[in-house]
């Protein structure tokens, strides 16, 4: 076999595998959108339907009529946005300290932060709710934001990014008399933009999709309802079949803004991630 045909076979298998995998990646999304345009009967028909006979666009209008989704968007945006800013700030500061500054107790404190990530989230539910009530935050957006302002994963991730910045860069700034905060602002932050955007996107998505905590909070303060909690209102406690098409349309309402945000930022994000020094751990 000559090298050209060998190369062709290699490329053939490369794309075969990629396309096979891509098909399975897309299938659930395809079905979600398709099913959200079906009647309840079509969703459960045998054999399964791939596309609705007649797209039921009014499913989307029905959702809007039943729940004030615009208000939920605003709440979600405010909560996820603020929490993301907070996480970026606290993670980059701590990440810098752990990556580049020496101080007594650094190692155990960092290990402690790794350990915090290992606790099941349920144990925080009741005590943190108690704290929110004590701090008087229960009736405002702070109750949805404050418990998420610091992320162990964020500190861990940004520390990895900051470690790949050469020490010489920092030292030369220090010789010029720059304070550590100045270095943080003018050297660290600009050099870890891909890391920041990676963390921003994952945090924002995580907060946007957060369910249990906002559900508990907003059952006390209905004005704090976020998108996932609001979508949940469409599904009835028992007769779930009645509204499953609306719930599917609701899920599309929840997922689509994230997809748009992601597709819009992905060039920066993926490319930035790729060219960053993240690989050189």
């Amino acid at each position: 076999m000559n090298s050209k045909s060998k190369r062709f076979i290699k490329e053939f298998f490369r794309y075969l595998i990629i396309i096979f995998a891509a098909f399975w990646m897309v299938l659930p999304f395809f079905w979600m959108v398709s099913a959200s345009l079906m009647t309840p009967q079509e969703i459960t028909s045998i054999p399964p339907k791939w596309i609705p006979e007649k797209p039921q666009w009014h499913n989307y209008i029905d959702v809007l009529e039943r729940v004030p989704i615009g208000k939920y968007y605003l709440n979600s945006l405010l909560v996820a946005g603020t929490a993301t800013l907070g996480v970026i700030l606290t993670s980059s500061l701590a990440g810098y300290a752990f990556a580049k500054l020496n101080f007594p107790g650094k190692k155990p404190v960092f290990q402690f932060i790794l350990v915090t990530m290992m606790f099941p989230v349920f144990i925080f539910l009741i005590p943190n709710f108690f704290l929110m009530k004590t701090f008087g935050m229960l009736t405002n957006h702070l109750s949805l934001i404050v418990p998420f302002l610091v992320s162990g994963y964020g500190i861990f991730l940004l520390r990895q990014f900051i470690m790949s910045i050469p020490d010489e860069l920092l030292d030369s700034a220090r010789i010029d008399g720059a304070s550590e905060f100045k270095i943080y602002m003018s050297i660290i932050l600009p050099n870890i933009k891909p890391g920041l955007s990676a963390l921003a996107i994952t945090t924002f998505i995580g907060q946007w999709n957060n369910f249990l905590w906002p559900m508990i909070i907003s059952s006390f303060s209905p004005n704090l309802m976020t998108v996932p909690v609001g979508i949940q209102r469409l599904s009835l406690a028992f007769a779930s079949a009645e509204t499953q098409h609306l719930v599917l349309a609701g899920l599309v309402y929840q997922v689509v803004p994230m997809l748009i945000v992601f597709v819009y930022f992905q060039k920066n994000f993926i490319k930035g991630f790729v060219v960053s020094g993240f690989g050189n751990v």
Partner: peptide, 13 residues
């Protein structure tokens, strides 16, 4: 004031 809680989380609430 009506407070809505999904059935599955009612006891939790």
């Amino acid at each position: 004031e009506i407070q809505m809680v999904p059935f599955g989380e009612y006891l939790t609430r």
